[in-house]
Amino acid sequence: MHLNLRICLLLSALAVMTACQFVPAYQRGDLARPEMAFDADPLGSKLNQHIYFSKEASTGGNGVAAGGCGCN
């Protein structure tokens, strides 16, 4: 992937973020729910990522990772 494309993708994402609205603390209850976490199940995610790491050529970019292993 060309560096320029990478930069464009990142800048696009950042541009979306600038369109956000400020949310006061007392309105953040729904955002703070456990099911809204980026990883709501650490053990389940760790196992899934380990399986994908051992069966696919891609790795990284997820919420959890383990050390290297002989599976890939």
């Binding site: 703070a32 990883d39 709501a40 919420g63 959890v64 990772a65 050390g67």
Partner: peptide
């Protein structure tokens, strides 16, 4: 609490639970 990193690396075990 909401923004724990979801970008992981080999060897990294980043907590991503909101709690």
């Amino acid at each position: 609490a909401l923004s724990a990193s979801a970008v992981a690396l080999p060897g990294v075990l980043v907590s991503t639970s909101a709690i």
